[in-house]
Design a protein around this nucleic acid. Structure first.
Lengths: 150, 150
DNA sequence: GCATATAATTTGACTATCAAAATATTTTTT
DNA sequence: AAAAAATATTTTGATAGTCAAATTATATGC
């Protein structure tokens, strides 16, 4: 199983590389105060309607306590607005500020450009095979996860 | 550019999941006290000869101070042995204990199963294509990284 | 209206991380 | 051979992210 070994190494490297690059790319320019974690929170809050803390925390698979701390910092930095719901005053609604929306789009464009550039390097055939392999990988993880959770 | 979108989503998902799931898969059984980070350190120390702190830290791209702390904990948990070199008494050599070796192999088996799942449904030829595609991606990222660093 | 449930925040503890200072040892220079 | 410079590691002080459990505030059910 020689190809297996090679593939393993390649995948491990790939994921490490993506992480590092994304982080560096994010921190370069005007959004230098946004950590990777901040960006995940911004992504989870999203561009649509305001969301309550619990649902965002669930999406990120962290406790609400953890999210509170992340949101504190994002509010202070001006990326997130936080208001108490009028209908249910226990609920806190978070949404992206103008600056937060810009950061969201900036990040999304970065992703698009990255994928664009990556796909350009590959032949049609390679794209297909890569898609298939990544799909398998996702399934594998989902199943592994399901087994663990039970 | 439909395949591009699909690839993007796949990469994003994988990316988000891979750490969490790997962690869960690892922490299941007898290795419940090993964090993902611990496992990376265990991997970097490896099964061969003892290694000094600096080279392991470099491999992991962390400072030696950070590694010292990780190794403190791994020594306490019994996964790593740490001895001072006789030849050069500034140097500290770390290696895997019996328990550490077992954890290393456990983790490697997880990776092997992962690759197995991916490769299962690919023909011999597709496997080759996948290997090429991943190699290209890694080169691409390495170059992108070099550009960022400059 | 009281008891219970729910949403969020706070608190206390821990891990991971870095940069810079400190310590111990080796190598180089004079 | 003594002093200076270099090297390997650890320690220190600071920050971010995380959780579980306690707390606070509000809503809902009986």
């Amino acid at each position: 199983m020689d190809i297996g070994n090679t593939l393993n190494e390649l995948l491990v490297k790939l994921f490490r590389n993506i992480n590092v690059i994304e982080e560096r790319a994010l921190r370069n320019d005007e959004y230098s105060d946004v950590t990777t974690n901040d960006m995940h929170v911004i992504e989870a809050i999203g561009m649509d309607d305001p969301k309550n803390m619990t649902s965002v925390a669930r999406a990120l698979e962290v406790t609400t306590g953890t999210l509170t701390i992340a949101v504190n910092s994002l509010v202070k930095k001006g990326y997130v607005d936080r208001v108490r719901s009028e209908e249910d005053r226990r609920v806190v609604l978070v949404s992206l500020s103008e600056k937060g929306r810009k950061a969201y789009l900036h990040h999304r464009r970065f992703h698009e450009r990255m994928i664009e550039a990556v796909v350009e390097e590959l032949t049609e055939e390679e794209q297909q095979v890569l898609g298939k392999a990544l799909t398998k990988l996702n399934h594998f993880f989902r199943e592994a996860d399901a087994r663990t959770m039970s």
